[in-house]
Design a protein around this nucleic acid. Structure first.
Lengths: 351, 351
DNA sequence: TATCTCAAATGAAACGTTTCATTTATCCTG
DNA sequence: CAGGATAAATGAAACGTTTCATTTGAGATA
């Protein structure tokens, strides 16, 4: 019956409907077509099971309604959430997300840019660490958490205020001598400002504090070592800790527990990220400065897709807030599981 | 200088190198080309900054070296890990992953299939729930955790043995009366076998048990309600709980805590998934039956890409194992943080 | 009726590759 | 040195769309 068994093309649809190729194209692109022809074409397309060939279209139009998100991995809850929200925001605007994973490798970051460029994406949102990234000035690009240049808009949260807030909260909740923990990043980035905010607030308010920065750039083991050295047995000489990430906060809590130091009774701990594992159901979680992940995703997408390129801010810092968890001494009893209806976030599918 | 300012094509490279179009193509596809010509072409390509146009190539070859992974979301640690490993396995084989997120919506599952088909992927790996999914028999397809038909290979873990193992472990660790918790799935799937394995082992060994299945299909709230009803105040009439997922296990632990029941002293809890949040650093985590996520990813990829389609098993069940966490009474003290060097998993970048 | 207008339909050309039937060059063999 | 065999290079055609200059035809106008 069919001349060929392969997937039907517009030409097949045109023949089936008894119209020209251009008309078929016009139907699928919403151009001016008389109602009767439109119906004929749509019917033929349905009958043949026609699907547009995005490669032919992309070749011709040179735009793909696809945006790349380059990120270290989906294995970390923060990145996983971010990818999820960016995907959502793009979908709502009629775009597709192409995810490129770098596995925390600086070389891969450049390769991913190359790859997504070959795929003719209409823009790139990137969470990268490589300071020497070569960015094509012709391709819309939004960076997350890393400032490259005035030509590359950067979206981050208000890290500085987050640091300030953490210090203030710890003091308000009864701590008197503070510690800051971090792993030294090997390239500067927006998150560094958490420390500046923390230290600056402590200084302004005459609060004694100490910052402990594990030197070895990106590995976690030396970090464990250095905090274990700092937290010697017996009575600790501090009672409030601010960690640069939630993950570090969990580790610190564990080490405190090892040493027989009770959290939050003796020492209170605040992390950063607001990691929302298992929705809100992982309890008790670490107290944390919450990044507005969804806002960041939305903002990155709308900046990238914005048509008025002259109006785009160089750096956008979105507001953070504090979320009480199980590692601080809140006056009011926590009430997560009994929480209000709006905490339920759609279907969970039992997972 | 340049005839046109747009991105250079193979034609431009051919002109620059003083060779024919076909030769340029041969160079980039590893066909037989003399060394001197190869060098000329590569030099010209570098000079012009030539990048292959995947849309032109895809149009011509009708294959894209891209595989779609359709999954509910990257916000759940299990899916996030899976996506990460599938991406890795594909990359190692010279393929790219295209991620399509369904947000747990059955309609979206079909739309995602449509979308990735338009994008001419070479195959699909899907973690879906819709029992009526229309699957193109001409396109390689591997399903995860859901059996569709003999024509669609399914990869899962050994859920049945996992259920068995959970029951056995609880008893070995001193429990005497067991409980199983789950949310009733609205469509059957491989994970259902966890319950069968659990119950079957209990029956064979004369262990008293009870299975509590929250009826409302996919929401988490009724689940909370039903376990709270079951766990009434005072002395519980059970001392071991197996939960169908880690997330449920965390919730159950939290509710037990609310009721003043100590874990693991009075009641021990085992979950399912082996969720590896923050690498291995979230401690103490829930005791769990660990799914071999990486193996599952590798297997799905190699089944999909296997050239000998006649040899592909209908159902592949990969072995699970038990991982002690903080919710069971192990004889030996846990030692995660002090663990051996091989627990460190590459760079963590401070996140 | 002849002419003009304008919307609708047409179909050839182009997008940047790969493919493959020819052509050209090189090296042996007798 | 003629003839044959092999390897390398060539360039036109094709992939399935979109685009756009052109054609068609139905009303409206004179």
């Amino acid at each position: 019956m069919n001349k060929k068994s392969s997937t039907p093309t517009m030409k097949d649809v045109a023949r089936e409907a008894g119209v020209s190729l251009g008309t078929v194209s016009n139907v699928f692109n919403g151009a001016q077509v008389s109602e009767s022809y439109k119906i004929k074409v749509e019917e033929a397309a349905r009958k043949l099971g026609y699907k547009v060939n995005r490669y032919a279209r992309g070749l011709k139009t040179n735009q793909t309604r696809t945006v790349a998100f380059i990120c270290p991995g989906t294995d970390h809850p923060f990145f996983g959430d971010l990818a999820n929200y960016i995907n959502k925001a793009l979908l709502e605007r009629g775009y597709r997300m192409m995810l490129a994973i770098t596995q925390y490798s600086l070389d891969m970051e450049q390769k991913c840019i190359q790859m997504v460029t070959e795929n003719k994406v209409d823009g790139i949102i990137a969470l990268t660490y490589n300071p020497d990234l070569r960015i094509d000035p012709g391709l819309p690009f939004v960076s997350i958490d890393r400032f490259y240049s005035d030509a590359v808009p950067c979206v981050s949260c208000d890290n500085y205020s987050g640091g300030t807030l953490a210090a203030r909260k710890l003091i308000e909740l009864g701590a008197t001598k503070l510690l800051f923990f971090n792993i030294a990043p090997d390239v500067p980035g927006e998150p560094d400002k958490r420390q500046y905010g923390f230290e600056s607030w402590c200084r302004s308010n005459g609060i004694p504090f100490e910052s402990l920065i594990s030197s070895d750039s990106l590995a976690f083991r030396p970090f464990l070592q250095s905090i274990r050295e700092r937290i010697h047995d017996g009575k600790p000489d501090f009672d409030g800790i601010f960690c640069n990430t939630d993950k570090m906060a969990y580790v610190v809590c564990q080490i405190l527990k090892e040493q027989g130091i009770r959290v939050p009774e003796e020492v209170q701990v605040i992390g950063f990220d607001g990691t929302n594992m298992f929705g809100d159901y992982l309890m008790p979680c670490v107290s944390s400065i919450v990044q507005p992940v969804q806002d960041m995703a939305e903002t990155a997408v709308s900046l990238l897709l914005s048509s008025d390129k002259s109006q785009i801010p160089t750096l956008t810092c979105l507001p953070v807030h504090y979320r009480a968890g199980g590692t601080t001494r809140e006056a009011v009893k926590l009430d997560y599981i009994y929480g209000t209806e709006d905490r339920e976030q759609g279907r969970s599918n039992g997972k």
